[in-house]
């Protein structure tokens, strides 16, 4: 009698668990796998990108970085187009994370040039002063490719012998950068979101020396990591003898230049502060 009652209890409890489980865990597979949510341009990872992703997992990067941009102003302005279900179909496991100790990385691909990432991974503080990210200089050792082909087969991703050969002689850091540069780029959001600057661009601070201290502050916080504290260049070119119209410099800073890897700063700086840094770049030569 007592045994039977316990068995009945166990069955009842299991059934109670299963109701919510079926509705909110099993049924959603159908919604999520809806063909309408598929995005044709989303591509699986190449062998090098996949190895990079595995290093990202190994190092637990997901403990500090999320990979989902929410449809909220603060997210889309800061990180880019909000994340779509169809963008993650090759992510086994998903890496959305739960805490943004560092910034979201869902759309990091194409934001910075490779050289920026390499310097940043080796010594984050050199690129982002006061960052609390650990140094990952040890990733410069050679990439272990013994399992690469097996991994691609396991996940059913297409690859060629040339893809596999491309991993030879690469470091773990190369793989990591290849992965980061892929993130969020399968949909052409960067082009779509490219800021269209219309109308005449006129510097409101033209020859206004009072904004120089603030312009320098903005430069030091946002530009110096790539263009050097002395403007003599680094990852980016030297700006010492910059000789372009204010409007051109403004456009480059505000909207970025995809071809050269120059990130867009319009979202973080806004127009006013962008003009201030432009003024700083132009006037510092004379003062």
């Amino acid at each position: 009698m007592t045994e039977r009652k316990m068995v009945v209890f166990l069955i009842a409890a299991t059934c109670v668990f299963l109701v919510g489980t079926i509705v909110t865990m099993v049924v959603p597979f159908k919604s999520i796998n809806d063909p309408k949510l598929k995005i044709a341009t989303v591509k699986p990872y190449t062998p090098l990108q996949l190895e990079g992703r595995d290093i990202y997992i190994r190092e637990g990067c997901n403990n500090c970085h999320t990979q989902t941009v929410r449809p909220l102003l603060a997210d889309t302005e800061r990180y880019g187009e909000y994340s779509k279900t169809g963008e993650f179909v090759y992510d086994q496991p998903f890496l959305w994370g739960s805490r943004r100790t560092g910034p979201d990385l869902a759309r990091i691909g194409g934001k910075y040039p490779d050289a920026w990432h390499e310097k940043h991974m080796k010594d984050p503080q050199s690129m982002v002063p006061r960052s609390n990210m650990p140094k990952y200089a040890f990733l410069t050792h050679p990439l272990d490719t013994s399992l690469t082909e097996k991994k691609m087969k396991t996940l059913g991703f297409p690859y060629t012998q040339a893809d596999l050969a491309a991993c030879q002689g690469k470091t773990e850091l190369d793989a990591m950068v290849a992965y980061l540069q892929k993130l969020g780029t399968d949909i052409p959001w960067r082009e779509a979101a490219k800021t269209q600057l219309v109308g005449e661009l006129k510097n409101p601070f033209l020859d206004n020396v009072t904004v120089l201290p603030e312009g320098k502050k903005i430069y030091d916080a946002n530009c110096a990591q790539c263009h050097g504290a002395d403007l003599k260049g680094g990852v980016g070119p030297s700006l010492v003898d910059i000789d372009k119209p204010d409007a051109d410099i403004f456009t480059t800073v505000y909207a970025g230049r995809q071809a050269t890897g120059m990130p867009a700063f319009g979202d973080t700086l806004g127009k006013e502060r962008t003009w201030k840094v432009v003024t700083f770049l132009k006037l510092r030569q004379r003062h």
Binding site: T21, T24, M25, P28, F29, I32, N33, D54, T85, E87, F88, V89, Y90, D91, Q92, P93, F94, W96, L147, K150, K151, T154, L155
Partner: peptide
């Protein structure tokens, strides 16, 4: 999981499915 070696495996679920299973 789908094992690749003794020390490495991939989740059987992908993307939003994996996320939903994980937080369930």
């Amino acid at each position: 999981s789908i094992p690749v070696s003794l020390f490495k495996s991939y989740s059987a679920y992908a993307g939003a499915n994996d996320a939903n299973v994980q937080w369930w």
